[in-house]
């Protein structure tokens, strides 16, 4: 029995159960943490033989479905901070554009691949380690970070000194509008350099730097991811012709089921437990990438287009 499907844009045939499984895994993470999962899915697709450019673009397409469903449900539940999300999105678009220009400059100088690789490992390793240590510490003292009295760190003093402070009702935080704009731009730059949606960077930024509550973080993150990935899908399809809709469709069918499982599991876990789980997954991906950098590759040549 033929259980494979031909991907017309990718130009290859892949087993349907494999794609459903990968989609289910990403959907599970999306349901659990409110991240798009691009940082995990794109390398996995490349590993099964999908061309890197098609993998990244099609992954964005399938994330649109997962995040639209989640955004809608979170919006109805009142757990999307739209003003915060829009500011982060605006910053993200500006930062993403700057990141694309930066990559073009680095490619002209000939060391873009080095910057991309190092950025990936440093960001993943840094975020994963910080989340892991912080979550362990938070679980030990029996309280979450946002309940702690913020230490008057340089970051806290700088944040309080910024103008145009407003109250974000859903998140129940008072911040300068410059902060989500700046942090959104920073994530946008990194996301453009790394070629991912940036959800796995944005979630820690919202939790630790914007001090937003976890349940609002998930909905707002999905809101931002939705529009980022719609933008990427349309751009990639019209400019590069690298979106394989068949691939995206099979992946998102898997993700529908996975997301339900993820949502079910997340209800049984506390915020700190979720954070530590995500930290572990990010660290596992980091270690995998690190091993890939340190161990001799199976092939000394590769097709252009991936990271």
């Amino acid at each position: 029995m033929n259980l494979s499907i031909y991907l017309p844009v990718a130009g290859s045939a892949v087993g349907i159960p494999l794609l459903l499984g990968l989609g289910g895994l990403v959907g599970f993470l999306s349901g659990l943490f409110g991240v798009g999962g691009g940082f995990l899915m794109t390398p996995l697709l490349i590993m099964i033989g999908i061309p890197p450019t098609v993998a990244a673009a099609s992954d964005s397409n399938q994330i649109v479905a997962a995040s639209s469903s989640g955004t809608y449900a979170h919006a109805r539940a009142g757990s999307v901070d739209f003003p915060m999300g829009i500011l982060l999105l605006l910053g993200g678009v500006a930062g993403g554009s700057a990141g694309v220009l930066l990559i073009r400059l680095l490619r002209a100088l000939g060391n873009a691949d080095f910057v991309i690789t190092v950025t990936y490992v440093v960001m993943l390793g840094g975020i994963g380690s910080y989340m892991f240590v912080e979550s362990i510490r938070s679980m030990r003292v029996g309280r979450v970070v946002r309940d702690e009295v913020p230490r008057p760190s340089l970051y806290a003093r700088a944040a309080q000194a910024l103008p145009w402070r407003v109250h974000f009702r859903r998140s129940n935080v008072r911040l300068s509008v410059l902060m989500p704009l700046f942090l959104g731009a920073l994530v946008g730059v990194l996301a453009a350099i790394m070629g991912v949606g940036g959800g796995f960077i944005m979630v820690p930024v919202m939790v630790y730097l914007l001090r937003m509550p976890m349940h609002v973080v998930v909905g707002t993150s999905l809101f931002q991811i939705l529009f980022t990935c719609i933008n990427v899908t349309v751009l990639q399809a019209s400019v590069n012709g690298t979106v394989d809709f068949v691939l995206a469709l099979v992946l998102l069918l898997g993700s529908v089921v996975g997301a339900q499982l993820g949502a079910g599991v997340s209800k049984r876990l506390k915020a700190d437990q979720l954070k530590i789980l995500m930290a572990i997954i990010v660290l596992v991906v980091t270690v995998k990438m690190l091993l890939g950098l340190l161990m001799a590759p199976a092939f000394l040549l590769s097709y252009a287009g991936g990271h």
Partner: peptide
């Protein structure tokens, strides 16, 4: 194609 792909996904 890109717009359709995004709309269908939504």
């Amino acid at each position: 194609y890109g717009v359709l792909a995004a709309l269908i996904a939504v």
